[in-house]
C-alpha cells in the first residue's frame, strides 16, 4: 500500500480498502486506537491491519492477549472514557467468548444509564464459510447482533462500501459491529474516497430489474449478481439489493423493490431458522402482501453446523445454480 493518499483507486482489494479506512480515520482522529489479537506484529489474521504498527506505533496499534471477553469489555471501557477503539475479533465465532460484553454491556450501557454516556467504538469480526475452517470458524452470526438492540451492524460487500462504512461508523457515537466475510478480503473493486454512495443505513441496488428481487448482503451479493447474469440470458430480469447495513435496516428500499418486482428471494449464508432472512421476509409480508405473486423464498445455509470436508461445505451454503433454479420457478 505505497500510495496511501490517493482519492481514487481503480482497483483495490477489500482488505486494502479496510486498511485505508482505518489509516485515514486514525490520521484524522488521534483518539482512535486499534486493538485485538495479532493486529500489530502479525498485521491481522487476514491482513486488514498490515503495516499499521509501523505507521502508528504500539501505543495505537495494540496486540492483545487471547482474551476476547476482555478485548470487547476493555474497548467499551476505553470508549466510555475518551477513546474510540476499533477492536477486532479474529472470527465472529468468538462472539461466543465475548457475548456478555457485547450483548449485556456494550449494547445496553447507554440505555441502562439513562443516556448519560456513549460507547463510540467498532468491533470488527470476520465470518463465513469457504476455507474448510470447520464448525467453530465458519459461522454467520449477524442474527445474534441484529437481535440485540443498541448495536449498529455493518456487513459490506464491496471495497468502496468497506471503506465508507468503516469511516462512517467512526463518526457515529453508537457501537457498531462490523462483519467481514473471509472470502471477500482478496476481492477487488473501485474505491472512490469522495463517493460514500449514501452509505450509512441505505441499501444499494446493485442491478436494477423488474421480475424478481434478490435481497442479500456480504458475499452472497456476489452469488446474486452471478445468478442474475445467468437469469438475464434466460430473459428473467433480476433486481439485486445489497443491504450493506442490517441495523439500521433500509426497509424502504426492500419494500419498494418488492412492490415493483412482486417476487422476492432473500439470500444469506446464515442458518435458515430465525435468521436475518426471516426478518426481511416478515417485512416483505407485512408491507407487500397484496402485491406478491409468489411466496417469498429464503435461501440460506442449512440448519446444521458447517462441515470441514470441502465437498460438503460447498453445498452447505447456497449455490449459484440453485439460486438460478429457484428464481426460475418463482418467475414461472
Amino acid at each position: 500500500m505505497s500510495d496511501l493518499n490517493k482519492n481514487y483507486y481503480e482497483k483495490i482489494t477489500f482488505r486494502d480498502a479496510l486498511r485505508l479506512a482505518i489509516h485515514d480515520s486514525m490520521q484524522k482522529d488521534e483518539k482512535i486506537i486499534v486493538m485485538g489479537e495479532d493486529v500489530a506484529a502479525y498485521g491481522g489474521a487476514y491482513g486488514a491491519t498490515k503495516d499499521l504498527l509501523k505507521l502508528f506505533g504500539p501505543k495505537r496499534i495494540i496486540d492483545t492477549p487471547i482474551s476476547e471477553a476482555a478485548i470487547v469489555g476493555a474497548s467499551m471501557g476505553a470508549a466510555l472514557t475518551g477513546l474510540r477503539p476499533i477492536a477486532e475479533l479474529m472470527y465472529v465465532d468468538f462472539f461466543g467468548m465475548s457475548m456478555d460484553q457485547i450483548a449485556n454491556q456494550l449494547a445496553k450501557v447507554r440505555y441502562m444509564f439513562g443516556g448519560q454516556i456513549n460507547a463510540p467504538m467498532i468491533l470488527r469480526a470476520q465470518g463465513g464459510t469457504g476455507r474448510s475452517a470447520g464448525a467453530q470458524h465458519s459461522q454467520s452470526l449477524e442474527t445474534w447482533i441484529m437481535h440485540t438492540p443498541g448495536l449498529y451492524l455493518s456487513i459490506p460487500y464491496t471495497p468502496n462500501d468497506a471503506y465508507h462504512l468503516l469511516r462512517a461508523a467512526l463518526k457515529i457515537n453508537n457501537p457498531t459491529i462490523f462483519i467481514e466475510h473471509k472470502l471477500l478480503y482478496n476481492t477487488s473493486g473501485v474505491l472512490d474516497k469522495n463517493n460514500p454512495d449514501q452509505i450509512f443505513g441505505k441499501a444499494k441496488i446493485r442491478k436494477k430489474g423488474k421480475d424478481l428481487s434478490i435481497i442479500s448482503y456480504s458475499r452472497m451479493v456476489n452469488f446474486a449478481e452471478k445468478a442474475a447474469e445467468e437469469l438475464a440470458k434466460q430473459k428473467i430480469d433480476v433486481e439485486v439489493v445489497d443491504l450493506r447495513t442490517l441495523n439500521p435496516l433500509d426497509r424502504e428500499t426492500i419494500i419498494e423493490s418488492v412492490n415493483k418486482t412482486k417476487r422476492a428471494l432473500v439470500l444469506s449464508e446464515s442458518c435458515y431458522t430465525a435468521g436475518v432472512p426471516s426478518e426481511i421476509t416478515s417485512i416483505i409480508f407485512e408491507h407487500c402482501y397484496t402485491n406478491l405473486l409468489k411466496p417469498v423464498i429464503r435461501y440460506t445455509a442449512e440448519d446444521t453446523p458447517a462441515p470441514v470436508a470441502p465437498n460438503l461445505e460447498e453445498n452447505y451454503i447456497p449455490t449459484i445454480e440453485k439460486i438460478v433454479e429457484y428464481s426460475k420457478k418463482l418467475c414461472k
Binding site: 435458515y272 411466496p295 442449512e302 440448519d303 440453485k322
Partner: peptide, 25 residues
C-alpha cells in the same frame, strides 16, 4: 452427511433448505 449427527440418530434429520423451498414452490 451434511445433515447427520446434528441430533441423536433416533431423531429426525434437520429438514434441508432445498426440501423446504421445493415444498413452497
Amino acid at each position: 452427511e451434511i445433515f447427520t449427527d446434528v441430533y441423536d440418530e433416533r431423531e429426525p434429520l434437520p429438514i434441508s433448505v432445498e426440501e423446504r423451498i421445493n415444498k413452497i414452490l
